[in-house]
Design a binder for these strands. Structure first.
Lengths: 187, 187
DNA sequence: ATCCTTTTTTATCATTTGTAAAATTTTTAT
DNA sequence: ATAAAAATTTTACAAATGATAAAAAAGGAT
């Protein structure tokens, strides 16, 4: 997924503003298993996924809880760092070899103050993420685990192929054993 | 809660931009029980709560699911209408007599294109809502119903006083019977 | 190809949560 | 003040999910 396509999907910037933004963006790659972001620190970088798949998780006493998967075209951000300049709560692990576009948070913040188009790009980015998050919250509130699994199967069939079921179960808010039961019931 | 305080809490606008914004804002009041927003339509208005408390709910086949409470200082928005100009999924019911500041979505959208400070105000608004929503999502994923109730009791003790328990139970994603059991266990 | 490790499934039992109905308490209307 | 309605709690039982252990299957490394 190229950077122009990723930017355009968020907000159609005038060429000039788009070039300004692209000047701040570079590329980087890491192997499967790499921890891209660590919790409990202020993360200065924003990543757009060019290729690969990652998960965001929180360290809980004895186990990890996966709460997000990101793949081609999506944005990796430590929300607390980005929005409040505070320590983030998420870790990001690469589930495949990945390639990213990267962008410094402070550079972007400066552009927000100077370029109204980029400010609106930032607004649209937050708004789109907000819709996605609110829909997930509501979906989780009134669907059973089984319904949530089937929705995932329907909406992101590739995810089930590319991500191991332990992470999927955690993402769905159930144990791996419970997910196995749900899968067995379908067959 | 006055409108200046509400605006300032989102983003500190320069006086000129703030006055521009305030020119588009008027006041309105409705009694307890009034349905302020209806699902399945494009909602043109944004409300800031001056006084009172409301709930957002979704109509599910046979029951209603409450997924948000808003009180003094908070913003009522049909997220889908605001972000994507599509039909919203939420109904908003007043749980007390309420007073609002209101603002037309299209008027605001025009200001986003003209005034960089207001564009950044809009950006900050979405970002702050995003953080709140993501934290709720994660909290729900790895806390038990009992822990979630106790957090609510700690963070919003007034909510338990002002809102009937059936709505609270729905908000927590459990049945009213289950909430009763949790409450009985504490005593 | 074989061994070793990791992942997934299965089985059993304990715990939590849901459903339905009744009892109790609180609120509202007259 | 009293009756009616609404909200909350309690009880009993059913269904779903969790915890743990063990077996089976899949994937990697040499």
């Amino acid at each position: 997924m190229n950077i122009d396509k990723i930017i355009d999907a968020i907000f159609e910037l005038p060429v000039e503003s788009k070039n300004t933004l692209k000047e701040s963006i570079t590329e980087v790659a890491y192997p499967k298993g790499h921890i891209l972001l660590k919790a409990d620190k202020i993360e200065p970088t924003i990543y757009f996924i060019k290729k690969g798949i990652v998960r965001a998780y929180i360290d809980q006493s004895d186990n990890e809880i996966t709460f997000w998967f990101g793949k081609e075209g999506e944005t990796i951000i430590s929300m607390k760092s980005y929005v409040d300049n505070q320590n983030g709560y998420e870790n990001i692990e690469l589930l495949e070899d990945c390639e990213f576009y990267k962008l410094n948070k402070n550079d972007l913040q400066k552009l927000f103050e100077k370029d109204i188009n980029i400010a609106n790009f930032g607004r649209r980015f937050a708004e789109k993420e907000l819709i996605k998050t609110e829909e997930r919250l509501i979906h989780r509130q009134f669907k059973t685990a089984s319904e949530r699994y089937n929705s995932l199967l329907k909406d992101s069939p590739d995810l089930i192929q590319r991500v191991q079921l332990g992470h999927i179960a955690s993402y769905l808010g159930i144990t791996q054993v419970s997910l196995s039961r749900i899968r067995a019931a379908i067959r």
